[in-house]
Design a binder for these strands. Structure first.
Lengths: 209, 209, 209, 209
DNA sequence: AATGAATGAGAATTCATTCAT
DNA sequence: TATGAATGAATTCTCATTCAT
């Protein structure tokens, strides 16, 4: 999908507000005001508030899985190294697109009737497919154990990352890091998550315990 | 807090709708209709929609931590066994109160200005305190490794459980379990999570890898 | 259908405005203002603007045909006298409910997709059925000619009455009757139409020409 | 008034939509879309939506009366034959310009404040004048009765024709003619009306009853 | 001459809450 | 204690029109 500059501006403003207040908790007036545009422009460019959300999804989630696929398939790496690559890819995505992932987390919790549930479903399926392949590679070489439950594994990656990101203010507080510059804090949290999740994945996949 | 039967009925109806459609996505009319009561009763009993949400939180989250504390302190168990007890306690809570936890997950993602964020914050702090104590016990006896990051650990427990619970329809679909009776499916998912998380916690806490 | 006083007040206000400005040309704000009530009351009582129009139709057109049937069947009259009774009944209805019939005339012209077209259709069918019976009575006794086209006949009655009523301001002007009190003018126009249409009907039905 | 091709195209598209949905029920966007032109062109060419309606009236109603006058005055015919000519002229006009006459019927019902009411008024006056002359001719020769109410007579012609045309779908249905090709149906209805109205006019004008 | 972008005003409707009883 | 009626504010969206090009 191609969006012009004004559309991008609206989408990005909406993203921040949706992340902060939820889709229903954000009015088109709020978005228009924040973006410094006329309310009618949202209908003009996207048709409706719902279609703006869809546009946001296609803007953000567009090629995430493709990127991941490209990254993993075109490198010559041991299976576990590919898994680690994927872990870092996810953490990075999550961190760079925190607003979008907050929205996704919320939408995921909601009932399955919304406009986004189909998109998320599709996205998740392709992603699980890819991870399954990676794991099967490792199982063929004997490096990985049998009986790996991919959805549970991915729930660990996404659930842990999402939860820590979403509650990072709490993490700061409990560790008395309120004064740390955000850039530094993001690096810290990324490192923490990376080490933690790679350790967990290795434990599960290789069962060396 | 004491709630009479009508209040409980309202709270429980609201809980289901909030879980399904979000707080902002649910109108007091929806709640009143679903609960078979008059719209005015919600303002009458709780003052406002926001205060109904607060009431829901105090109704559900009231003594969770106390229950956990009681359960753990009054048993003579090895540190890891206590940790395992806590893991199962959480999974059980989550599973029995899926609606409430869906709401909490959403609210947690939101900005820190809502009425619930204070309550959640408080709840989380007490809980992390408790886990910290449990871990320190294990560290004293030498069973647990040093340098355990409690918030990251808890993010793993809560994030993974929450994510899997929230996306259970997807888990059913990907494993072709759409026809399985819900009771059986809940048992299955609980067992899966229990084994998975206990394994992860042991790996992290004992570092035997 | 039962309507309370407030509902009747809204319906009657809406009727006048719809007659004057058309359905689409009248806003719920206009109605609310004119009726001296809050805008939200219209949604509250009727659900929507469209349903208000439906309510108006069931309020006005409810038992028109029934009244006519009762009136005609329970009298012992010659066929032509029954026809004359019907003509006067229509003229009277039209005159007493000018606003409503203006709305009906407009809706009748519109495409057949609106909410009212079904109601009008139904109303027209029952009515034509009744007239057909009356005419067949006259045909059995030999008083009326064969080959009477009922829809064309009714188009003459309704079309002529409707047109003259709708353009009565023009009739006043062309006959220099602008100063005549409305009551008197209505009587005049009613008499004119009555004589005119009875003459036409007699001519067509008895073919004495 | 002179209209270029594009203007004519817009006018004719607007005519169809106004006839179907009413003036207020049609948006300039609808017209633009249907006509395959830019929304701004309507304002550009006509100034406003209202002025487009005025343009439509001057486009259609322009020389109708002149045509009728020319037709009647330049023929040497008996008064009743001239009347019959006029009846057919009207039926033909109505049938060939159904959309336009639907609009006129609606506008005629409306309050006398619209942009079109003046135009319609003017048109009607000239027309009644002409008919009056025709009738006076007949009265002078003794062929026509005295005391003919011209507006009532014209209401019969216009009201009956308009009503039958506007409800032709109903006429088809009641006579089980849904499958008849439109061309054939239009001929049928024209013939029916012609015979019917000529009979009625003769009856009234010559009073041979 | 023609148009895509933009807009303020107004549309219908829903909202949480209050009021009178 | 409980509620049907009522309402002002806010919701999303559409409207006819204008502007810059």
């Amino acid at each position: 999908m191609d969006f012009n500059d004004k559309q991008k501006q609206i989408i990005e403003t909406a993203e921040q507000l949706f992340a902060d207040r939820g889709f229903e908790g954000t009015s088109v007036r709020d978005i228009a005001e924040e973006a410094g545009i006329n309310v009618a422009m949202i209908s003009y460019y996207f048709g409706s508030k719902e279609k703006l959300l869809e546009a946001l999804f296609s803007y953000r989630a567009g090629d995430t899985v493709q990127q991941l696929e490209g990254m993993i398939h075109h490198k010559v790496l041991a299976p576990l190294e590919k898994i680690n690559l994927m872990i870092d890819f996810y953490i990075n995505k999550f961190q760079r697109q925190q607003c979008f992932f907050k929205i996704m987390m919320r939408e995921q919790v909601a009932s399955q009737h919304g406009v986004t549930s189909g998109l998320i479903q599709h996205f998740k399926k392709r992603n699980q497919q890819l991870v399954k392949q990676l794991i099967q590679e490792g199982q063929k070489t004997g490096e990985f154990s049998k009986n790996i439950d991919v959805p549970v594994l991915m729930a660990t990656l996404i659930g842990t990352t999402g939860h820590l990101m979403a509650t990072q203010h709490f993490y700061r507080e409990i560790n008395h890091l309120q004064e740390m510059p955000d850039e530094q804090f993001q690096k810290l949290i990324k490192k923490k998550l990376s080490v933690h999740l790679k350790f967990l994945f290795k434990a599960i996949l290789t069962h060396e315990i």
